[in-house]
Amino acid sequence: MIGYYLTHPQVEIDPEIPVPQWSLSDKGRARLHIILKRDWVRSLSRIVASDERKAVETATLLSQACGAPVETAADMGENDRSSTGFLAPEAFEAAADRFFAEPEESWNGWERAIDAADRIEAAVTRVLATHAPDRPILFAGHGAVGTLLKCRLAGRAIARSENQPHGGGNVFAFRLADRSLMCDWTPMEDFHGC
């Protein structure tokens, strides 16, 4: 059976609000509504989300389409960037380049990529230990840690080139039986299964 990892789509960016509390934007919600009747979404038996608001909102919309309950896991959160707070887009992109390029180093107090990779892999492993392998499951989360998880599943080195396309709302799939990557990041509107 299949496991899916879906990143939340576009959010309302507000420098005055802590990033984990950002909500989905109207555009992000509209993108999710496009996929709610897809067979792969309606087949989900379990949805586990990061406890960040945008991930929970993503999971909740999917849950309404398939009837699967939403669980949250704090250790599925995005890489910890609280040391710098909000960064303007250009500064953020430069910081993200460093995050991926130097996974064993902390950039200005950010969680190291290697530590975030260990954390997300452990979170998914813990969830799957209690999951029936013949039932589809979706993890709703974030771009950076999703990329780190994808690298682990594929046996690839951490690299920015593995990152999702800009804007969020991308999905990849993996086999539950052996946790091997089935398909790479795909915009959710274009994803119809692997």
Results as ranks from 00 to 15, higher is better:
M1F: 09
I2R: 15
Y5Q: 09
H8Q: 03
E12F: 10
E12W: 09
D14V: 14
P15T: 05
P18I: 05
V19F: 03
P20W: 01
Q21W: 05
S25P: 10
D26L: 14
K27S: 07
K27L: 13
A30D: 11
A30Y: 00
R31K: 11
R38H: 15
S45W: 09
V48K: 03
A49Y: 09
S50G: 12
D51H: 12
R53I: 13
K54C: 00
T58L: 01
A59P: 04
A59I: 02
L62C: 12
T72I: 15
A74C: 06
D75S: 07
E78R: 07
R81T: 01
S82F: 07
L87Q: 11
P89N: 00
P89S: 10
E90M: 07
A94M: 08
A95D: 09
A96H: 14
A96D: 13
E102A: 05
P103V: 02
E104Q: 03
E104L: 01
S106F: 02
W107H: 15
N108D: 13
A116H: 11
A117W: 04
A117Q: 14
D118M: 05
I120K: 02
I120W: 06
E121M: 08
T125D: 12
L128F: 06
D134T: 11
R135F: 01
G141R: 01
H142L: 00
H142W: 00
H142F: 00
A144S: 13
G146D: 12
L149T: 14
K150E: 02
C151F: 10
R152C: 03
A154G: 10
A154P: 03
I158T: 14
N163C: 04
Q164T: 05
Q164W: 01
G168K: 01
G168A: 12
N170H: 15
L176T: 13
L176N: 03
R179H: 13
S180T: 10
S180P: 00
L181R: 09
L181P: 13
L181E: 06
M182T: 09
D184A: 14
F191N: 03
H192V: 09
